[in-house]
Write a protein that binds this DNA or RNA. Sequence first.
DNA 1: CGGAGCGTTGAAAGCCCTCAACGTTTGTGG
DNA 2: CCACAAACGTTGAGGGCTTTCAACGCTCCG
Lengths: 230, 230
Amino acid sequence: MSAQEAELLEKAVDRVETLPARSVVTRRGDRLRESTLLIEGAMCRYLDARDGYRQLLAYHLPGDFVDMHGYTLHRLDHDVATIVESRVATIPHERIDGMMRDHPRLAWMLWRSTLLDAAMHREWIFRLGRLDAAGRLAHFLCEVADRMEAIGRVKDGVFALPLTQQDLGEACGLTSVHVNRTLRRLREDGIADIARGEARIFDKPRLARVAEFDPDYLYLDGGPWAEPQD
Amino acid sequence: MSAQEAELLEKAVDRVETLPARSVVTRRGDRLRESTLLIEGAMCRYLDARDGYRQLLAYHLPGDFVDMHGYTLHRLDHDVATIVESRVATIPHERIDGMMRDHPRLAWMLWRSTLLDAAMHREWIFRLGRLDAAGRLAHFLCEVADRMEAIGRVKDGVFALPLTQQDLGEACGLTSVHVNRTLRRLREDGIADIARGEARIFDKPRLARVAEFDPDYLYLDGGPWAEPQD
DNA sequence: CGGAGCGTTGAAAGCCCTCAACGTTTGTGG
DNA sequence: CCACAAACGTTGAGGGCTTTCAACGCTCCG
C-alpha cells in the first residue's frame, strides 16, 4: 500500500474510538453505514447457537477490517464483538464509494481484504471438519501465530492471545473442559502453551504437523495489502 | 442484473465447455488467468487432508461463479472439481479488468458474489462447530434447498442432489457410515431423504428446526444479483 | 455377466461431552 | 493493601455420539 493510499484511507476515517472489552459492536441483521478498522486490541465475529453457545467465525488483529463485507452486503449475518479493550477507526460507506470510484487500486485492496477473510473461513471449515481437538487448537495457533508475525507482534515464539479456554472452545468447536485437557497435552508434549493471555510456541514444526497446517491461504507473500502482481 | 449487464458478461465469455463428472478443474496453488461460471451441472471446492479425505468447502449450482476470488487473489488456496458432468463458461481475467473499470455496478455485483460465498463459508463453520450429525445434514439440506429454490429447481420439495453419502460426509465432517445412519433417522422421522441423486424434503419446518437454520445469510431477498438498495 | 462403487447394518472402541467439584487468578471495593 | 467474589482453569468419572472395522446387498455400467 502506497503512502498516498494510506493517506486516502486515513482521511476517510470519521472517528477513532476506544471500545471496552467483551462488548458487542454489531448484531446480526444490523444495517451498516460504516466499516470498522481495528487499530489496537482484539475482536471476533461469531454466530449464536440455540443453546446459548457461540461459534466464533473469525479472530481479528490490529490492521484488520472487521466488517468490510458489510460495505457491499449492507447488513451483517453475524455478530461482531471485542475481546479486549480495542481502538477502532470508523469509515463511513459513502466515503468508501468515492475511493472505489477514483482509486481502483485501493478498491482492489479492499476487495482483496474481504477475500482473505473468506480464505481464512475456508481453513476454519477444514479445521472443524477434519481435525481432532489437538489438531484444531494447533491449527488455530498456527494461523494466529503467522498473522501476528506478519504484523511484527511475535517475539521468541511468544505473542498475545487474550482468549479464555471457553473462547478457544467456541473457535474450535470444543468444550472448555476439553480445550483444557488438550492444551495440557500440547504443553506436556513440549509443543505449545496458552496461559495468562499469552501463547508460547515451543516447537513450530511439530505444531504445524499436528495441525496439518500450510500457511499458503494467508497469502502472506505480499502482506495483506500486496499489490496485483501482473 | 440488467439485460445490458448480462450481455456484457456474456460477451466477456471466452468459451463454453463441458467437463466430465468427477474431474478436477483447478488445483490448489494453480495460477489463475480466467474465472469459471457454472452453467449446468454441479461442482464443489475442497481441501485435502493428510489421510486422503477431503473437506468440502462449497457446493455450487448453475449460476455460481466457482472461482471469482481467483480474479483478485490470482491463485487458489483449494481445489475445484465437478460432481457431475458440467457446462461451464470461462471468462478471462483481462476482460473482467475492463468491466471493472467501465461498469462499477457490474464490479459491485462480482464483489458481492464473492461475499455471498464467504457468508456461506461462515454458515458451514457454524454447521461443523455447533451441530450434531443430524443437524449438519439438515443444515446442508436447508441451504441447498433454498439455493435450488432460488434458481427454480425445486418441485414439491424435491430437487437434484447428486452427492454420494461419502460426499455428504466430506461436506459435513462425518464418515459415510454415520451419514447413512443419520439419513435413515431423518427418513424414518419423516423429515427428509436423499436417494438416487435426489433430495426430498417432507417437513421443512422440522428440518429447519433440527438444523437451527435461518436463511438470512443467503441474502435471497434480492437474489444473487440484487442491486444496491440505497 | 461380472465387477466396482455405493448403500446398509452390526459390534466394539475411542474421542469428546456432561456433570461435578475444587484450585487459581483477576478485579474490585472497603 | 487486603479481602472477597466472580470468573477462569483444572481434574475425575461416567456416558453418549461418532468412528472404525467388517461384512454383505444393491445398482449401474462396461
